[in-house]
Structure formats: C-alpha cells, structure tokens
Computed example of a mutant assay.
Amino acid sequence: MEFLVNLDVDDLERAIDFYVTAFGLEVGRRLGDDGVELIGGPAPLYLLAKCADTPAWKNADQHRHYGRHWTPVHLDVVVEDIDAAVARAIAAGAAQEQPTVTDNWGKLALMADPFGHGFCFVQFLNRGYDEIATA
C-alpha cells in the first residue's frame, strides 16, 4: 500500500511555485492541463486545479473556496531545522498561524499555504514521539 497526497488549488502555476520553493520539491510530470505530480518528498504530491466556487463533489451544497479553511486532515512535514523551514515557507507565501512551540518531544509550527490548506512543520527532539508514548 502507498498513500498519494492530492491538494486542490485554484492556480496551478502559483501552487507549483509555492510547493517547489517552500518544500524543495520538483515537478515529476504534468497530468494534462489541470494536474501536476511533485516529487522529492516521502510521497508524491499531486496538485489539482479546481476552480473556486465549484461543487466539492457532484451535487454538493458545499463549494470550494481557497481562503483559510479547516479540515480534519492536514500534512505534517518533518524537518531538521524548523526555523529554516518556516522562513523558507513564509518567503514562498505561507503564513505562520502562531509562534513555534517547543515540548520535550519536539518543536511544532502551525502553518497555512496560500490556498487555505493547513500544515505543520515538526522537528523532533530527544526521542521524538517516544517521549510521550504510553504503549
């Protein structure tokens, strides 16, 4: 089994620029006019052009929007230097939503991309999640 990560965006070229710049990914291949595969991370990232205000699925009352939105699914990106990762992402157009926090397991920075998707940078310290694991 493998996981593929798909993100809807309203401006494919702007999204390519953001994810290449912020995360050091590269274009693997174009998928027609409305999609691109980015490689260089632990799983391919697929950017899919979907116009704002279109139905989220067939016959949906909910429509896509690209302002900051909440979803129960988000990306955690594990990095070795959280300060450098945050600075690079902000320079590419991301927003840091609160100051980086440090715990005994590591550091966490809550971020949002220019398309409203939340993501986090995680820098593990000490034994990482083993510091708080109970089983």
Rank of each mutant, 00 (worst) to 15 (best):
M1L: 11
V5I: 15
L7H: 08
D8A: 14
D8Y: 14
D10Y: 04
D11S: 11
D11A: 07
D11T: 06
L12R: 09
E13S: 10
E13I: 00
I16T: 05
D17T: 12
Y19S: 05
Y19V: 04
T21H: 00
T21L: 10
A22E: 12
F23N: 06
G24I: 00
G28A: 10
L31H: 01
G32T: 01
D34L: 10
L38S: 05
G40T: 10
G40Q: 09
G41W: 12
P42R: 00
A43L: 14
P44G: 00
L45I: 01
L47Y: 04
A49P: 08
C51D: 13
C51T: 15
A52R: 08
P55V: 08
P55E: 02
P55C: 02
N59E: 15
N59G: 07
A60T: 07
Q62I: 15
Q62M: 15
R64V: 09
Y66W: 06
Y66K: 07
V77N: 03
V78M: 12
D81T: 09
D81P: 07
I82K: 13
D83N: 13
A89M: 04
I90N: 14
I90P: 00
G93V: 05
E97I: 12
P99Y: 08
P99I: 09
T100M: 12
D103Y: 14
W105N: 08
W105P: 05
G106C: 12
L108Y: 02
L108D: 06
M111Y: 00
A112K: 06
D113I: 08
P114M: 11
G116A: 11
G116T: 01
G116C: 13
F119H: 10
Q123H: 02
Q123W: 00
Q123N: 02
F124R: 01
F124G: 15
F124D: 04
L125S: 13
N126W: 00
R127T: 10
Y129K: 04
D130P: 12
D130I: 01
A133K: 05
T134V: 02
